[in-house]
Design a protein around this nucleic acid. Structure first.
Lengths: 140, 140
DNA sequence: TTCCTTAATAATAATCATTCCGATTACGAA
DNA sequence: TTCGTAATCGGAATGATTATTATTAAGGAA
């Protein structure tokens, strides 16, 4: 959110948040809050789920992490790297990054024809992943 | 979801569901479940919120309605018409349909480079709507 | 029309991801 | 090292959605 950069908020550092970010950077599975909690719990036995959520929102505010809401009942998170889109399996809910190319024509098109101040876009592709395709055949 | 068409489920008709669909077709605001509840409650004083949710899922199953999950804490719904995308205001959460053109290049590109069985895609544009742009200036 | 089977409804409880709160801990400036 | 306060922990609160159960009403058959 560009319009918040003017009021830069300073956050005190914490080991929990440092490790949370490292964990997010080290995986590609787009974890849920509870997955992150389970993994860091081993390292911080007193860890609280509230700490996960609060730090995720701090990291999002810092632009280091982004939230993905993909029609499931719970949010997923990922460390922000390069812009990319998502392949979402409508069977099992799995989300896969789709780096591939950015489509520049979309940006031009959209800016021309709306009075929104567009910050970006995300393409979610819906379909059935390889594993679920196999399962479909088996179920007959 | 194409893979469900083979087992066609028959639903008994109901006045509540009939009116729910009519209401969804008559508006462009992408209502929440509780908005739909509040409106139909006038017509059906005994209406239950569970009835809204159950009928929404039936209408979705019938392909007449689709659910939009746009990073808010609650779902929004719309009657399915032609394929289109969404402009989502990151300030106020408003969602606006963006008919405009379909981008055929995306389909070709994606089908070539993944083993997903792609059913479709949706582009969510994030930005700040005209009204919220005005409010921003005022806050200084 | 009347009856009968069963899906749809209403009311309410349960679920569960997320947020909030009060007491305690620990970062980091002086 | 001290001190002010942000970060943490634990648990309770919130709120959207789902499940449960008794009641109502589609809609097909007689």
């Amino acid at each position: 959110m560009n319009h918040q950069e003017s009021s830069v908020k300073h956050y005190r550092s914490s080991r929990q948040r440092k490790r949370l970010l490292e964990l997010l950077c080290s995986t590609e599975i787009h974890p849920t809050a509870s997955w992150l909690y389970d993994h860091l719990k081993k390292e911080f036995p007193n860890l609280s789920l509230g700490t996960i959520y609060r730090n995720l929102s701090i990291l999002i505010d810092q632009g280091l992490v982004q939230k993905i809401s993909a029609s499931s009942s719970f949010d997923r998170f990922e460390a922000k790297t390069t812009p990319h889109h998502h392949l979402i399996c409508t069977k099992c809910g799995k989300i896969i990054d789709f780096e591939e190319k950015v489509f520049p024509a979309i940006n031009e098109e959209i800016r021309r024809s709306t009075d929104f101040d567009i910050e970006g876009y995300r393409i979610d592709f819906f379909g059935i992943c390889r594993e679920c395709q196999k399962k479909q055949y088996k179920s007959y």
